[in-house]
């Protein structure tokens, strides 16, 4: 048994310790908001937060997440940063097919949690590992800046 803290809840799972966190979330726990895109840390679709830092859950063994705080897209609305990011995403109508967007939002929320006013270079550094085949990058950039602005002004 591995004890996990997922979105504030304590859960025990029976998966073998080397199972990637992604599949524990999606298959064992039925939380399908976190997406599978490449399986080898090349696309960012599976991004979740581990103690607040963005990680690729497809390449993180569940054993490495034990005892740490796992946060997924399903809990973004519960945090002020996540909420601001989602609101900005809606305002800019960012998603197209939407498949990459859980990862994009998790990446953006992790960035904004530690960088209140990200520059374009900060955004490039934080987000260039998260691919979007629909090409929503300019809207993602605009939404991140908007979310940062709204968090600073508290609106």
């Amino acid at each position: 048994m591995i004890s996990l803290s997922v979105n504030g809840k304590n859960i025990s799972v029976n998966d073998s310790p080397d199972t990637p966190l992604l599949w524990v979330l999606r298959d064992t726990l039925g939380m399908t908001g976190t997406k599978f895109g490449c399986g080898v840390a090349l696309c960012g679709a599976c991004t979740v937060h581990l103690d607040g830092a963005p990680v690729r859950s497809c390449s993180t063994p569940v054993s490495a997440a034990a005892g740490r705080k796992i946060t997924t897209i399903e809990a973004m609305a519960a945090s002020p940063v996540g909420k601001a990011v989602q609101a900005a995403w809606i305002k800019h109508d960012v998603p197209q097919c939407g498949y990459c967007q859980s990862g994009q939002i998790m990446g953006a929320a992790a960035l904004l949690a530690k960088t209140r006013k990200p520059s374009d270079t900060d955004i490039d550094a934080a987000m260039s590992g998260i691919l979007c085949r629909c090409g929503t990058y300019n809207q993602i950039r605009a939404a991140i800046k908007d979310a940062a602005q709204s968090m600073r002004t508290g609106s």
């Binding site: 039925g30 939380m31 399908t32 897209i73 973004m76 960012v94 939407g98 859980s102 939002i105």
Partner: peptide, 21 residues
Amino acid sequence: ARRLDTPAKVNGSAKFGLDVR
């Protein structure tokens, strides 16, 4: 007009083929 599918695509609730259980 705003896209009708946006809200479900920002909170992980939009269901894709791989999300069928």
